[in-house]
Design a protein around this nucleic acid. Structure first.
Lengths: 250, 250
DNA sequence: GAACCCGCTTCACATAGATCAAGGTCGGCG
DNA sequence: CGCCGACCTTGATCTATGTGAAGCGGGTTC
């Protein structure tokens, strides 16, 4: 099976075998980290670009009162800091949520690859723009959707994202994060997330136990959450027939 | 005075006079739009790239219940849809908030410029990455900050962004948007935004009348809002001495 | 200059979600 | 093998913000 990063980026551009080989060749097998370890801190200027090869991590900021807001899940295939070189210092931190394996790529190689291959250049742009699109959708969710829809929406997104890189077993994914983590991402309280999750379970929409999330009926959950995967800009007809099609026909 | 787009992008890269001329030369003077007009709709694949030359616009999504979430302010110098070509269809809409003037750039020219000039390429990346950083900060604000801080934070950000492109008169900016618009951006209600704005006025932090926002003491407002401009990744020492410096010394 | 409309303001009341607090369960570690 | 620390669960109560409704002022239209 192909490299996780290749599986992801194929959604963003048509990569030639040469592109794929060059990309994989640039990845240095990096460190393993335990759960809840800092990968990069706010203010850092990391030397290398990090890629998640295995495990879950997140982007976050800490507030003066000690609160934490998670602004993105980083799952296998995701870049942590593709373009720090351009921005200078990190404006947020990155930490693992579960034991993880990270790869690194020297920034010079990133530059070279994207100058050499139009397809890779496009793929890297695509990955960045999708990250941005996800942020926009999270903003909508936090701003305008009630807590239960919000949590359901996060579940839908995670399912699709993991499916898109071949890390799902049907409608079941490994989701070894904590309800507290989920709360920090949703802008809710752990207590309230707990109540919401239990309701989703009681409604037969999901099962979440043994670090495994099972979505019994993805279309029903998507309907409930008002989840439309268009913002993930994936190739292929993931979940064809969801509200996505409804929008297209509008 | 130089072109608004140049003034903005100079924060992202060292542009040579040639770069600047090439960039400005690529901009076609576009249409004028009244307030509250759609520029691009969700699902569109706009032919040209749009730049705001004058006025205020926003990115937004509409929810099934009719609610609107604004996900970004677009002010003069901002790109509306720099990379639709890569993503395919727009996953959100763009609309003017005030009467505006838009420029357009053919996507082929964008490609050419960024292939030809490393500095321009970097500047375009920078603009995109800053948009993303702003989204992250908004997420933090919506998730973890109370309504009054949230509104104050938006004011701080707007002030700095407009200052950075020379559109502020000291600590005063033209802010011809509606309290309802502000509410749609903050994920609040117009009623509640009204209460909060009045409180900020009563506390002597701001004045907002005649479509003009005056920040009496930027450092005090920033302190109140927990605003640190680092995420805007601007050149120069805007507001040096704010909490930003505190973080650096941490 | 009357009629309107839009945005601002205020008030009374409702509620989603926060907060505080107390168990309970389970896996890891001494 | 028993303790301890994370995490989950539940309950009671509080509060920030939403909802619904009404009035007001200024600018625009006819």
């Amino acid at each position: 099976m192909s490299h996780i990063l290749v599986r992801k980026l194929r959604h963003g551009a048509e990569l030639s075998p040469l592109d794929e080989a060059a990309l994989v060749g640039a990845i240095h097998d990096g460190k393993r980290l335990a759960a809840r370890q800092t990968v990069v801190s706010e203010g850092d200027r990391p030397r290398d670009v990090h890629v998640i090869l295995d495990g879950f991590a997140c982007r976050y900021k800490i507030l003066p009162d000690g609160g934490r807001q998670i602004m993105a899940w980083l799952v296998p295939g995701d870049f942590c800091d593709l373009h720090v070189a351009i921005l200078g210092a990190m404006d947020h931190g990155i930490a693992t949520l579960t034991p993880s394996r990270l790869g690194t790529i020297p920034p010079a190689d990133v530059d070279r690859l994207s100058r050499t291959s139009p397809a890779l250049s496009r793929a890297l742009w695509w990955a960045t723009l999708v990250d941005e699109a996800i942020l926009r959708e999270w903003l909508v969710t936090m701003g305008r959707r009630p807590a239960d829809r919000q949590v359901a929406h996060l579940f839908c997104e995670l399912l699709v994202r993991l499916q898109s890189v071949g890390l799902a077993d049907g409608n079941r994914i490994e989701l070894p994060i904590t309800q507290g983590d989920l709360a920090d991402a949703a802008g809710l309280t752990a207590v309230h997330v707990n109540r919401v999750v239990q309701q989703l379970r009681a409604d037969g929409l999901i099962d979440w136990s043994d670090r495994t999330l099972t979505v019994h009926d993805p279309r029903a959950l998507a309907e409930f959450a008002d989840f439309r995967p268009n913002y993930l800009h994936l190739k292929g007809e993931l979940w064809s027939g969801t509200a996505d099609a409804a929008l297209a026909g509008k």
